[in-house]
Simulated scan of single mutants.
Amino acid sequence: MSANSPMEGFEVFPTRPGFIRHNGGIFLHCERPVIGMHIAEEHLNPLRIAHGGYLATLADTAFGAVLRRQYDLPVAPVTVNLSVDYLAAVREGDWVEVEVKVHKFGRTFISASCELKVGERLAVRANGIFTVWTGAIPAIA
């Protein structure tokens, strides 16, 4: 399966101009609170495993996508805190899925966690605190 092809049940992740568009190949599950992607060469560090910063980006992106869709927000919430535990290497060609669980959606903050897995193998665990953006939303250029 090519890096541009989603697994069954996934669709292309809709992105606005900006950072995440340059990290493409991300797919959003049609029903579940999950994003997925194939790890490509450009996601690797010098050890030829997925760069930790990129895996943190995937976790943060999953949080934003799932929270935005689940709570019908105009934009993804803003990350206040993100903690990431790296538990296993992720390699080129791996299909990774990041599943989000929302623990609390409060008046001010949202608490959530996620797991990044390759098959059944847990590679990354992340926890985050988020807040809903209340400012103006910039026009798309």
Rank of each mutant, 00 (worst) to 15 (best):
M1R: 11
S2A: 06
N4F: 11
S5K: 11
P6T: 07
M7T: 00
G9E: 01
F10W: 06
V12H: 04
P14D: 12
T15A: 12
R16H: 13
P17L: 10
P17K: 06
P17C: 08
I20G: 03
I20T: 09
R21T: 13
R21Q: 14
H22M: 13
N23K: 11
G24W: 03
G25T: 06
G25N: 07
F27G: 00
L28H: 05
L28V: 08
H29Q: 08
H29T: 02
H29L: 13
C30K: 15
C30N: 10
C30H: 05
E31T: 11
E31A: 13
P33G: 08
V34E: 15
G36Y: 14
G36T: 01
G36D: 14
G36W: 06
M37T: 09
M37K: 10
I39A: 09
I39D: 02
I39H: 03
A40Q: 14
A40P: 01
A40S: 08
A40F: 00
E41M: 04
E42D: 13
E42K: 13
E42L: 05
E42F: 14
E42C: 07
P46F: 13
P46C: 14
R48T: 03
I49L: 12
I49S: 14
H51A: 09
Y54W: 15
A56M: 13
A56K: 01
L58N: 05
D60G: 10
T61F: 07
A62D: 07
A62M: 09
A62E: 07
A62G: 10
G64T: 04
A65T: 02
V66C: 14
L67R: 00
L67V: 04
R68N: 06
R69N: 06
Q70V: 00
Y71P: 02
L73M: 14
L73F: 15
P74Q: 07
P74F: 10
P74T: 05
V75Y: 08
A76K: 04
V78F: 08
V78I: 12
V80D: 06
N81H: 12
S83K: 07
D85G: 10
D85R: 10
D85W: 02
A88I: 01
A89R: 07
A89W: 01
R91N: 15
E92M: 13
E92Q: 15
E92P: 00
G93I: 02
D94F: 13
D94A: 15
D94P: 08
V96H: 04
E97D: 10
E97I: 00
E99P: 01
E99R: 09
E99C: 05
V102M: 04
V102E: 12
V102C: 07
K104N: 14
G106P: 09
R107W: 01
R107E: 11
F109D: 04
S111V: 07
A112K: 00
S113P: 03
S113Q: 14
L116T: 11
L116N: 08
G119T: 03
G119P: 05
G119W: 12
R121H: 10
L122T: 03
L122S: 02
R125C: 01
R125K: 14
R125F: 13
A126D: 12
G128S: 15
F130Q: 03
F130N: 05
F130E: 04
F130H: 07
W133E: 14
W133V: 00
W133T: 03
T134G: 08
T134V: 09
A136I: 00
A136C: 02
I137F: 08
I137H: 07
I137N: 05
P138G: 12
P138L: 10
P138V: 04
A139G: 11
A139K: 12
I140V: 13
I140N: 02
